[in-house]
Write a protein that binds this DNA or RNA. Sequence first.
DNA 1: GTTTCGTTAACCGTCGACGGATATCGGTTA
DNA 2: TAACCGATATCCGTCGACGGTTAACGAAAC
Lengths: 222, 222
Amino acid sequence: MYEITSLRQATTLGEEVVRRLRYLVITGRLAPGTHLVEDRLAREFDISRGPIRDALRKLEGEGLLESRRRGLFVVGLDESDVEELYTLRESLESLALRRSMERATPEDWATLQGPIDAMRDAADRGSAEDFASADLEFHSRFYELSGHRRLVSVWEQYRPTFSVLLSVTNAQDADLHPSAEAHVALLEGVRSGDVESTVRELSAHLLGAKNRMRAARAKGAH
Amino acid sequence: MYEITSLRQATTLGEEVVRRLRYLVITGRLAPGTHLVEDRLAREFDISRGPIRDALRKLEGEGLLESRRRGLFVVGLDESDVEELYTLRESLESLALRRSMERATPEDWATLQGPIDAMRDAADRGSAEDFASADLEFHSRFYELSGHRRLVSVWEQYRPTFSVLLSVTNAQDADLHPSAEAHVALLEGVRSGDVESTVRELSAHLLGAKNRMRAARAKGAH
DNA sequence: GTTTCGTTAACCGTCGACGGATATCGGTTA
DNA sequence: TAACCGATATCCGTCGACGGTTAACGAAAC
């Protein structure tokens, strides 16, 4: 049904199970509608049900699993889910950007250069996964700098989904450099201090990302 | 330290513990910074650690507890938290309102009349708790009608906090009728079909709610 | 063929216990 | 007095098991 290898060392077994299942669900290797049974998963991962329970609860919170009558079921990610993820994110990140532009100092913004360099480097090497990582790291700074704990919390809830999603779809892009440069433009906007204009730029940025993802997914094996 | 009575019948023990602790944390009976130890809680509630663990994880997700080095600690709700809760909500609910105005039918909007009647009734009786309940039920419809699963999910994550918070602060308001009528105005806006104007009205509505809450909390015992 | 009902199996909520990791505290040393 | 360090207690991650509840299945009745 799906491959179970070995559980790499993780802070906790549950966390590792979360990572595994998350990947399987988002990539569709675990078909939507699949019934996940605690007992069976425990046997397959060869651990007890405790950590499995923790993992399933977490994934439910991430919207990847759905609790129905008995047990949890896999919720696949189709086009409407991509739509949901990006509209929600646009809403959250706009608020984060507004707040961070009110609070952050030039030194704070300087920390965004690291992820940009990492993106360029990943683009040079053609590493889709590293690019996705740096990309999300860049955007995460907005949340951190917003000084809004709950905003950070909600973002972190969905960030792993974007991470897997981006890693997969980026792999189809021939050249990731344009995307890296788009972030440079975003950083310039932030530094200009023009909030409204930069928020619009962010919206456009995310709209573009959404469309690229839709295109990639329409073409890819789904 | 805090009173433990008996665990009323609930769908699950963990859920009941969640309700209890949530109330204690939000009302401040459980002081910010308090270290919650699984073993001790299990003994106090006279149940095993399993359901306690579930409860603590859930409350952490709601932002009421914070995971530090060892175990979970109570995060109090101060003025900045009220600020956070309402700014986040404004962001989410604006999106929900926009989407629901694009999708919902007149019959859908008709279902908002029930909560309004309930608010008026609760205002007549002076029941702060029932008013809060109907109030949130009214707003929840926006999320449901938005057809956006993740938006609903995030809202449901914070709704219980608003529920307790409103119940407590509403109890200080002499007359709840004005608040009920504000919702009527909101419903009229929705029916008018003018999205931008109604979104602005919602923002003003929530801003007013936030300020009333701040005033009530500044005056109340905190 | 369809519905009703009873039996069986599946599945989750809950429990109690173990062991390792970590903070705490007392004692020793510089 | 202050810093280091080791013994101790605390606390959480994990385990395996039990029992009640609910879904699934098949048999009996219409």
